[in-house]
Write a protein that binds this DNA or RNA. Structure first.
Lengths: 154, 154
DNA sequence: AAAAATATGTTGCATTTACAACAATAGTAT
DNA sequence: ATACTATTGTTGTAAATGCAACATATTTTT
């Protein structure tokens, strides 16, 4: 009853949707104003490749919450901007397109991450780091409940 | 630092995006399996009209988090399904398309809300109502911080 | 060894979405 | 009173997204 409350705009569904929307807006604005030279999606991909250097496109897709098709397109764009290069490589005896971040890409990523960090300290002032940690933890637990429900398969 | 953490997949941005995505998936699945006869978006619109009987399309758009164009299209679909009817009316001496929920629409809305409530009690078992209230409150406070940042206009 | 299943990536298409332009009307200012 | 601005809704268009089909290659099954 409290979960979906009585009506749509009172539900947790709505609160999460709305928060996600505002964050996306803020992100788009940040990347636009700061002239990052890449989209938030491209940054997400680049940053995630940096954290998982041997990742394949399929696994990257799962992490950045896109499907394989769109992940491929984002990577095409990053490649066109010479921020990554793609070579055919082998992992577990399987052919994969290995992605390597170029020097230019690493420089750009570092710059971008710094700008983001700098910008977002303004939020941290208003919402303490501990509060954010708690919120993230609550969301994780909440997701776990949802995923169990998905497995129940009704 | 904690807000965006070091990397994309550790950030609160990511947690919220991921949670939103899972909720949307769950919602789509629910509406599909239960044969609701309308999309989650249409339900959001219908339920919100029910809560604000005199609302105009523009205000409805703000509430259901769509733009005016898409709100109009959703309403077209609801009208085609005979769940609402639209008549030209006057509000504050202004011409607006007044939306009225049909009897069929009210019946459908009640049915749907009941099915949702029933289904979501399963989640409440795993995640207490109080926890959900707390999560919603945290999200509200977090959004407030973000909105202040948006007003600061960079 | 042949066939079936799995993994990886690409392409095409249909849907959703957002944004901008437009039309019609009403309020406000000069 | 006329012109400007704001509100409301529609239409058109371009971009993002997701899904299904396909191509290729590898692993597993028979």
């Amino acid at each position: 009853m409290t979960l979906k409350k009585k009506h749509y705009t009172d539900s947790i569904y709505y609160d999460i949707e709305l928060t996600a929307r505002i964050m996306k807006l803020l992100g788009a604005q940040l990347f636009d104003v700061m002239n990052m030279g890449m989209s938030p999606e491209e940054h997400a991909a680049l940053d995630t490749i940096h954290c998982h250097p041997e990742i394949c496109q399929r696994d990257l897709a799962k992490l950045i919450l896109k499907d394989r098709a769109n992940t491929g397109r984002i990577l095409n764009s990053l490649e066109a901007k010479k921020l990554i290069s793609r070579t055919i490589d082998v992992k577990n005896n399987r052919l994969i397109k290995k992605m390597t971040i170029t020097d230019e890409g690493n420089k750009k990523l570092e710059e971008t991450n710094y700008k983001i960090k700098e910008y977002l300290q303004k939020v941290s002032c208003k919402f303490s780091n501990e509060e954010i940690d708690n919120l993230q933890e609550s969301l994780r637990i909440f997701r776990k409940s949802l995923e169990e429900l998905l497995e129940m398969n009704i």
